[in-house]
Design a protein around this nucleic acid. Structure first.
Lengths: 142, 142
DNA sequence: CCGGATCCGTTTCGATACTG
DNA sequence: CAGTATCGAAACGGATCCGG
């Protein structure tokens, strides 16, 4: 497993050490907005993460305290990943990133519903995701 | 130069293709919060980016329309990078990321001033950075 | 089946030296 | 000053293998 090393004392570098790669934030998107919980489900994302990379990212995210592993059904060997409070607090970051992408990505349109909701009551949207885990259909496309 | 290729139609993947590495967001931090404009200034950051990586990231960010290069002083060969509107619109993303880092990074304390300002009037803070480019001293530590 | 670990070829990174 | 060139090291990606 890759052990990230801090490169500076600037606060943002803590996030960059964790998320400065192609996959970590995608895993967090899956668990936060798409209710994914099992290894197989992450693997099935359209971005096609490799098995070894996924295993590495899951264990790094767990080591950093953003997710935690639970033995859902010990006899079948089935495990589930759940997001922690620290992980949930990443929701605003992902939302801002998604808003920026939606505005400038020539490839996808901006999800007008979400933008309107955010403008109306930002904190409420964050709370909704935190509780429901992306149950609202428009969130699942992020 | 590395040409990023889109991996999915999910809007957030546009941002991840651009920023899914250790350096791109650091360059944007430098230009947005620390008023850096010249190649050597970026090089001087404490994270010690290599010259070839910096050149690559600058040209990618320029190709993506987040910064643009101007001939500040044509006869001395001195060039300056300036941030575009599209690049400035990344400020909220960086701010959220910094807030999250500050909250959870055991290594740095949270900049209380900024947190208070953001809670009071988020849009005003963003406008301030947009105009002044990190002139406020507390921004330079981000 | 499920959740990985291992192996291995390819891509990217990073440090230093060098150049227009 | 603002980058290239080079080269070893690290990370990635795909395929396959393994233990429960």
């Amino acid at each position: 497993m890759r052990e990230p090393q801090r490169r500076s004392d600037c606060p943002i570098s803590y996030a960059l050490d964790l998320f400065g790669d192609k996959w970590s934030l995608l895993v967090m998107r899956d668990i936060l907005f798409r209710e994914k919980a099992h290894y197989r489900e992450f693997l099935a994302s359209e971005e096609r993460i490799a098995t070894n990379i996924l295993a590495d990212r899951l264990s790094r995210l767990e080591a950093a305290g953003l997710i935690s592993k639970t033995d859902e059904e010990p006899r079948s060997g089935k495990q589930a990943y759940v997001v922690t409070r620290k992980g949930q607090d990443l929701i605003p970051v992902l939302l801002e990133m998604m808003l920026w992408s939606a505005r400038y990505d020539p490839h996808t349109g901006a999800p007008a519903v979400l933008i309107a909701e955010l403008k109306k009551d930002r904190a409420k949207v964050v709370r909704g995701i935190r509780r429901a885990g992306g149950v609202e259909p428009f969130l699942r496309t992020l």
